[in-house]
């Protein structure tokens, strides 16, 4: 193991000071389920680990009908699954109870879940987010790309965003709050969770809108509007403890039997949680039937560009969207 410093601050201000301005300088240690594995595999080599588990204000959930749900970044996935505050968010409950394994849910935090790194096998063997062959071509395109992205790959990034909880949160319109010493005023900046995930344009960039000295501190999920219906579906090979091959989280605001507005978010199909406005648009003004669900599913993948081995993921993504829409509509 490469040597590293270990710091255990008890305020977020101290964290920022300890992290430094490059990713190599410091890394935040929360649940550690991803970071420690990356360090053991020599994929990341931070010189300092900043243990944030001592910052109690970052832990726990609260729900207020007017303000919605606040989730502290250090809240574990298991704590979320047990929290009564999720009663208004059945799709979020489903997403957290389906994630990973009980052992991992006991340790992993929601902040870490948002910040976890891709599972792309080239990335995990230390070849970077946008691995290249010796002659400068994409290794994912030339190599084995059965699990690679089918959407949003224009920049040459082919990994898929790993979080299965983020698509559900984005469908609910969640925001992420980030502590940033440089942010004006309170030192906290807030952005829609959907914008937190970005597709790197070069190997030097990362897949999150986060600077090396910033820290995710909480997630805010707005109160669900009246008549919000949600549906969640993961296509995964194993019944438990497996990454989906494609997934979808759908939130429909209904007006009687008609969809007033819709959010369709897919997971494991793109380098970011993929918000499909095309799919959402097909649903507005419609009632939910197998046909309208199928139309949304078809719209969701019209821009898909498969590689040599991942064409099946288009079929799977469609099935996920269709089923999530039908679940939201109460049909399945």
């Amino acid at each position: 193991m490469r040597p590293f410093e270990y710091a255990s601050p008890n305020s977020k201000e101290q964290v920022a000071a300890l992290l430094g301005t490059s990713w190599e300088q410091g890394a935040i240690l929360a649940g550690g389920t991803d970071l420690l594995a990356l360090m053991k595999d020599d994929v990341v080599t931070p010189r300092r680990l900043v243990n944030v588990k001592g910052i109690d204000t970052l832990r726990g959930t609260s729900y207020q009908p007017g303000n919605g749900l606040r989730i502290g970044a250090l809240t574990t996935i298991a704590e979320l699954a047990d929290s009564k505050d999720l009663a208004q968010y059945p799709m979020l409950f489903e997403a957290v109870t389906e994630a990973a394994s009980p052992q991992i849910r006991n340790l992993a935090t929601i902040g870490g879940n948002m910040c976890q790194r891709p599972r792309c096998w080239y990335f995990r063997s230390g070849m970077g987010l946008m691995p290249m062959t010796k002659d400068g071509k994409s290794l994912v395109v030339a190599g084995d790309n059965r699990y690679a992205a089918i959407l949003g790959t224009q920049t040459g990034a082919y990994f898929v965003s790993p979080s299965t909880i983020a698509p559900a949160l984005i469908a609910y319109g969640a925001k992420v709050r980030i502590y940033s010493a440089k942010a004006s005023g309170s030192g906290v900046r807030e952005l829609p969770l959907g914008r937190f995930f970005i597709t790197p344009k070069s190997a030097k960039e990362r897949e999150h809108d986060l600077k090396p000295d910033e820290m995710v501190i909480e997630l805010i999920v707005p109160p669900p509007p009246q008549n919000l219906k949600t549906g969640y579906f993961e296509v995964r090979q194993k019944a438990a403890f497996d990454w989906p091959l494609a997934m979808a989280a759908v939130a429909l605001q209904m007006d009687g039997n008609t969809v007033k507005s819709a959010r369709v978010v897919m997971g494991h199909v793109a380098p970011v949680p993929w918000v499909s406005d095309e799919a959402a648009a097909t649903l507005v003004g419609k009632t939910i039937t197998p046909d309208t669900a199928m139309a949304a599913a078809n719209a969701a993948v019209t821009k898909a560009k498969p590689l040599s081995m991942n064409k099946y993921k288009i079929t799977l993504a469609k099935a996920a969207v269709k089923r999530a829409v039908l679940k939201a509509g109460g049909a399945a």
Binding site: V235, A239, Y312, L316, A319, A320
Partner: peptide, 8 residues
């Protein structure tokens, strides 16, 4: 599942 290809 003929839509997802999942075998149980």
């Amino acid at each position: 599942d003929a839509e997802t290809g999942i075998v149980r």
